[in-house]
Structure formats: C-alpha cells, structure tokens
Nucleic acid binder design. Sequence first.
DNA 1: TATATTAGACAGTACAACTATCCATTTTCC
DNA 2: GGAAAATGGATAGTTGTACTGTCTAATATA
Lengths: 217, 217
Amino acid sequence: MRISELSRLSGVPNATIKYYLREGLLPPGRSTAATQAEYDEAHLRRLRLIRALTGVRGLSVASARSVLDAMTEHRTDLHQLLGIAFGIRPPESGTPDAAEGRPPAGSAPEAAALVDAMGWSVSEQNPARQAVDETLRTLRSLGIAYDWETLLPYAELAERTARHDLDHLETVTDPLEKAERAVLLTFLLEPALMALRRLAQENESTARHGGGEHTQA
Amino acid sequence: MRISELSRLSGVPNATIKYYLREGLLPPGRSTAATQAEYDEAHLRRLRLIRALTGVRGLSVASARSVLDAMTEHRTDLHQLLGIAFGIRPPESGTPDAAEGRPPAGSAPEAAALVDAMGWSVSEQNPARQAVDETLRTLRSLGIAYDWETLLPYAELAERTARHDLDHLETVTDPLEKAERAVLLTFLLEPALMALRRLAQENESTARHGGGEHTQA
DNA sequence: TATATTAGACAGTACAACTATCCATTTTCC
DNA sequence: GGAAAATGGATAGTTGTACTGTCTAATATA
C-alpha cells in the first residue's frame, strides 16, 4: 500500500506519517521508484503502536522511539527488552544526570533496601530504582514521612500485579509477539491501573466517610 | 519574605516564580507597596508542591493548577476534592469531548461492568472510568483480547492499594492537611507504584526465565 | 543619596509535535 | 500518449507549553 492508504487505514494524517518516518519511529517503506514506496501491514501495526504509546500513554515521540527500537531489536531477549523499555519515564530527570558524570546507575539506597527486603532479583541499572527514591525524597521534602518500609505493602501488591502480567505473557509463544505484548502490557496498562486505583479510592472514601450527602463535581 | 528569598529557599528561578504567579498557580503575595510584596511559608510550600506535581509527576502547569485549586477550595470535602483531582490526566483526550456536546460523563460500559462486579460505589462522572475503557479499546485495536474481566484481578489489587492509601490518610486529622496529603499520595505515589511494578516485573521475569546469562543494557 | 531590588507587564526563546508547501517524479485514467 | 492526481523527500512554517529576559517606575538599603 502507499502512504495515503496507510493514512486512511490508521487515521493518522499523511504529513504526520512522514514526520514519523523522518524521526525514525516508522521504518521506511520499500522503495519501488524515486517517488514511490510500498508499505505493508507491519507499518500499519507499527503506526497504531506509535499512536497508542504517544496518545493513551502520553509518551513523547522520542521515548516511543526508544521503546519501539528496543522492541524490534531485542525481540529475542525479553528480559533485556524489558530492561530497556523500563528506562522510559516522562520528561523529568534521568537524562541530565548522564551529562554530569554519574553514568546510568545513580544511588538509590531506599529502593535497594526495598528490593532486598522483598527478596527481589533486580538489576542495579533498573531506572525504576531511582524513580522510587526520587518519589520518597520528594514526599519527605513536603513533610510526609514516607520511607521504603512504608512502601512494603505496595511492593507486595506490585509483585502480584507483575505475576498477573507475566502470566498473561506466558500464553504467547511467538517471541516476536511476546516482545510486543510485554511492551504493550507494561506501558498501556499503566493508565488503566492508575485509573483503577482512583476508582477504588473513591469507593473506599465513600465507604469510610459517609458517601450519601455530597454534591459531586 | 520577598521574591528573591522565596527563589533562594525553593531553588526555583525568580522569573519562573513570576510566571507561576501570572498563571495563577501561586497566589499573589501581600502587597506592601507598589513594587513590594510579602510572601510567607505557605507560598514556599505551595511552590514546592507545584514543582513536585510538574516535576516528579510530570503534570502540565495547567493540570497542576486545577489540582492545586481544587485542593485549596475544597479542603472541607475530601471526597469531592478527590473527584476533581482525579480528573487530571496527561495531555491526551478528555477535554476535546466537552466541545463536542458530550458533557462530562462519556459512556464507559466496560468500566461500569467492572465497577459493578467489584461492588464499588463510584460516581458516574469519575473520569477514571473513561481511562479504563479507553485503554481496553486501545489494547483490542492492537489485537490483545483484554476486557473488563481480565482486569478483575488488577481491580482487586487496586482495591487493596486504595485501602493502604486511605489508611494513611486517617492518621491525619487537620482537614487542610488531609486534603493536601490526599492529593500528594494520589499523584506523587503514581510514579513510584509504576516503578515498583517494573521492579517486580523484572524480578518475576528473572525468576521464570533463567536470569543468569543475559547482558543488561 | 547612590546602588541594588522589586513587582508587574510584556516580549523573546527553546523545544516538541505537528502541518503545509514545493518539486521532481511516477501513476492513473481517459 | 498525455493531462491530472498522487507520491517521496526536503524544508519551512505553525502551534502550544514552559519558561527566560528586559524594561520601568517605585522602593529599600547602605
């Protein structure tokens, strides 16, 4: 198919597809002439993936590219793929450190303690460690006494969540598809999980403090 | 204190503080003269809050303002506050619908089924409902057969997470502080919870597929 | 009183994510 | 076979967000 059909099928404007091609998010089509290239199902799928990551999940185009790149390159090593994919976080920090001299593994003593307490086997390089420490630091700077022990019950729940995640992955055999699902479930499920938490919070709030007589905004 | 001291204590540039004042994220100081205003501890705290929400959590300045506004206005009604605060989601959709004619409550049949199955009491207006449905729709458009029943185990875990959240809130009595904590715990904990999930995923992945012989990126 | 600060207004910058225009080709349809 | 439409690739322009810098009149400070 040509670019217009790709655009029609995906709902993504022609110009935007070209932009993704330029940015390397979408691999170029097979050139058949100077002004002609062929795209296939894989391109369409990739395009949908891009829109899911940038739209629903809110990843930046640059982040989406890293994830997608890792996904296609390391489709053999799911474990490594997840390691790479997990490095993606919103705009915030993470990158500026690299320019300072502290390589990839910053110190995250609290996450380390937590990982240890849970008996988890997790790479020192996993950036999620820093995310945990940064959150704790921020909460404390705002006067909320949270430390890694406070997070233990949450870690327990995270462990069960991860088990469900991996359970689902086991139903897939094709390594190519498995890699893709790993990424999709990890990233795309995040907004849903947070949404579930909010729904549960409202329910719990209603249950504890009488929920009958309040105007809802 | 004057603006420079506020800047020094918070680490936020002078010009940026003025920007937040302009945007209404930070309430104006008490004017003592045409070119002089006094700021206090509350301003400093608010400023730290702003940076936490926009930095760690990655909220846009506009979203942070809604959250902060809701927090200060509805400090009496925690329940309502959470309802408002929960409406915040990354750039994506949510707002465009309003201009189309579909008011606040879009249809989210799957979330409704899930809420029902869990026996939860949740407002029809809670935007988290849409988030759930949107995620499910996206996953299915990518060929992953997920529906609300698949999310049930996650909902169960979300319920326990919410219980921990509310447990922590009960330790606070001052309604003003309670409102602030509700917001902080809901929003600022999100990155940490997702980070915990990723750590747990890596651990689970290592446990299932031998985790000895892989190079970590 | 000279020098530094300040509030407030406004213009300018940097970056991300598109969007539009051009042009030299192919295609396609008649 | 030839005119109209579409295409790939390059480049320029737009929009929105989050600042950052400059200016001015008015204090504050030494």
